[in-house]
Design a protein around this nucleic acid. Structure first.
Lengths: 268, 268
DNA sequence: CAGTGGTCTAGACCACTGG
DNA sequence: CAGTGGTCTAGACCACTGC
């Protein structure tokens, strides 16, 4: 039996055993509390798409019944999922699967801010798809995306402008199979953030990302596309975005012009 | 009376009233739950130094008695303080006031990483204090530190090297009064992170910071101090660090050489 | 008004630390 | 072993949403 906490407890107990590691020779047993297990179960449901982005998930009470635990335990599991930005709680309404669409904060992963004004960005960005092609993954791209060198990938190049000023030039690489059928035209036809597009069109939800930031000098091509003089210093932002399971699903190399914008970060 | 939750409750109830805003004409009433109030009370004790950095704070049970609430409520308050990195919980030992000293992660606010290796940074940094002087705050510095232009500030310039390679050149400005008595020699004499130095020597604890990041070109002075050729692109990191009460206590402008290191950021 | 998340309590037991 | 944080439950009530 698992958690005979309450004074009386029948055998219709929870699901898993907190520590299936008593006499085992495991290095770090790492006792797993019930709510972590429940969190894992809910996570699975999210992964397999039992509830889709933007939808409500069952109420805490329902989930408590389903998993045969108390509401408080489900609550703690959902608390962590909410802290991870995988779900969003709305009092009185329910708990919803997080989505990159329908957010007031349009670009969740974009930390660039205009010098003037705190607003997300001055008006909507103008997007220009420069290129979109299928190719064999170079070794560095393959490594970043956990593919084999030579596997098919899609490469997109685009320029983002704010107030008619070209500000971001980015190249991005996507694994070929999950994004089969992606074309420049479909990209152009979509209104809203690209990550929302990935969600609705390909069922790929980006959950978290890592960025490596450097300062570089604009080369001839870059300076032309961004309409700055050659050798202008640019912020190079290399991002790897992950879906569920920590699976890398996008490599993106962005070049930011930082004379009227800056990359904002908060440290705690 | 405040929270007559339990079926029976005497008048020796909690401390504050959750909503002192019933018929009031307040814009956003913003009901404040008990645990938020408890959090505020604990925060006050931290601010006035009732418990110093590195020390234990009273146990959850003790605090529950002191504030006349249940342990669970204190727990939730401390949970948030821990999430804010103001306090560190250690199972079996107690809850400790967070500190920049005695951390395995030496530089909590420094996000620079070497290209090779995940380790915090290859060995300890070599620090070289270039300058340390008292002056009247220029207007931009005054604004950042919430001072009046002309107020006394301390300015420090230093170079950090990793593996004998100059990598960071930073200027930092501190308000004069809290840091009265700071000299280049005292700085040089201190082992460990500068923020730990501020804690132990001046009782100033940095709690959080904001950074604005740009790409710039090294000028003559900068390139000489960092031993790079002029016009090398550098990462410009402007940081404002805050103590309790969101009081700005340091302005720091760092220039990072990013050919062998990068600024790492994680997005959720 | 019912339903959802949010707060609070009381009490029991588990996991970890140190004397 | 006692003391601390960590987990779990059960139950009551509050705040918010929408029918």
């Amino acid at each position: 039996m698992a958690y005979p906490y309450p004074p009386s407890n029948d055998s219709t107990a929870p699901i898993l055993d907190g520590n299936a590691n008593k006499g085992a020779a495991s290095a770090t047993p790492a006792f797993s509390p019930l709510y972590k297990q429940i969190k894992g179960l809910i996570l699975n449901s999210l992964r397999v798409g039992e509830w889709k982005p933007g939808e409500v998930i069952p109420s805490e009470m329902d989930l408590a019944v389903r998993f045969r635990v108390s509401q408080g335990t489900v609550r703690k599991a959902i608390d962590e999922l909410a802290a991870d930005n995988l779900v969003v709680r709305r009092q009185g309404k329910g708990t919803f699967v997080a989505t990159h669409a329908e957010r007031q904060v349009q670009y969740r992963f974009l930390k660039l801010m205009p010098d003037s004004g705190d607003l997300s960005l001055e008006g909507p960005a103008q997007r220009q798809i420069v290129d979109c092609k299928r190719l064999r993954a170079p070794s560095d791209v393959a490594r970043a995306l956990a593919l084999r060198a030579g596997d098919a990938v899609l490469q997109v190049r685009r320029v983002l402008s704010f107030a008619d000023k070209p500000t971001i030039l980015e190249d991005l690489w996507l694994p070929g199979s999950p994004f089969k059928g992606l074309t420049a035209d479909r990209l152009r036809g979509y209104e809203g953030p690209m990550y929302a597009f990935f969600e609705t069109e390909f069922g790929v939800r980006m959950v978290r990302a890592e960025e490596k930031i450097r300062a570089i000098s604009a080369d001839a091509v870059q300076s032309q596309l961004l309409k700055v003089v050659a050798l202008t210093p640019l912020l190079s932002v290399e991002r790897i975005a992950f879906t569920y399971h920590d699976l890398p699903m996008e490599l993106r190399r962005g070049l930011y012009v930082t004379d009227t914008h800056y990359y904002r970060n908060e440290l705690n």
